[in-house]
Amino acid sequence: MELTGWRGTLYRYMDWGMKLAYVNILWLVGMVIGLGILGFFPATVAMLTIIRKWSNGEEDIKSFTLFREIYKKEFLKSNLFGYIWVIIGIILFVDLQFFRSLPNIAALIASFFFFILGVIYLIALLYAFPLYVGYQMKLIQYFKDCIYIVLSNPLFAIFMVLGFYFPYYLMMKIPGLIPFYGGSLIGVALIFISNKMFQIIESKQRHNINTAHK
């Protein structure tokens, strides 16, 4: 018997809460198996893949089986993808700190430039893994598309930042939630917002194609 009204709503929220807690535990286990530095990115990709399928209505998937499959399949590629982002971030940070240490106008302008690049980088990073689990592309294309999305849709960029910040803030205020929702709650927010953004972009592309063919 299917529950309706407030009971049905409560049941759906509880069901989502249990599933998010379960996939978060899988995420943590995946990181431990990869000794942290090698496990974080494939575990994150596997977790976001599951969340994305749930958000698309595929709620009957076998989470553990899919997590294990994606974790193994994407282990090397996701680490390469993730650590390219890490290296880019380190370069931007070092350059920013270098120019901030110089007492002249040219260095001040350069430091402002690298600060702006750093902001774009951080927002693009929020899109990086939702884009990775949603589309099959060459690695370089992911980076291009992330930058394009940030620059062409600043409003959604703000939503993505808020989508990361509020769950993060909640985890910092209630640390006991971290083992159960530390990654999955942020993942849900980022997947939901990025999916809306991707749908808008795809709709615009289809409209442009249809217009060009007329």
Rank of each mutant, 00 (worst) to 15 (best):
M1L: 08
G5D: 09
W6N: 15
Y13Q: 14
M14C: 14
D15M: 03
G17R: 05
G17I: 08
K19M: 08
A21R: 00
N24R: 00
L26M: 03
L28R: 00
V29F: 08
G30A: 12
V32Q: 00
L35V: 02
G36S: 13
F40C: 05
A43M: 01
L48T: 12
L48E: 10
I51Q: 02
N56H: 14
E58V: 04
E58L: 05
E59G: 13
D60T: 00
T65V: 02
L66V: 11
L66H: 06
F67M: 06
R68D: 13
R68L: 07
E69Q: 08
I70E: 03
K73V: 11
L76C: 07
N79D: 12
I84V: 14
W85C: 15
I87Q: 07
G89N: 10
I91Y: 10
I91T: 07
F93Y: 14
L96A: 03
F99W: 11
R100G: 11
S101R: 14
S101Y: 02
P103M: 02
I109M: 09
F112A: 10
F113E: 08
I116G: 10
L117A: 13
G118A: 11
G118I: 11
V119F: 15
I120L: 04
Y121C: 06
Y121F: 12
I123T: 04
A124R: 04
L125N: 12
L126K: 15
P130A: 08
G134M: 11
Y135C: 09
K138S: 13
K138F: 06
I140E: 10
I149N: 04
P154M: 11
P154F: 02
L155Q: 15
F156E: 06
F156I: 15
A157F: 07
I158V: 11
G163D: 01
G163T: 14
F164H: 04
Y165E: 01
L170C: 05
K173I: 06
P175K: 06
P175E: 14
Y181Q: 07
Y181A: 05
G183T: 04
S184P: 00
S184L: 15
V188Q: 02
L190D: 11
L190C: 05
N195Q: 13
F198C: 14
Q199P: 11
Q199A: 07
I200Q: 14
S203I: 11
K204A: 05
K204H: 12
H207E: 10
H207P: 04
N208D: 08
T211F: 09
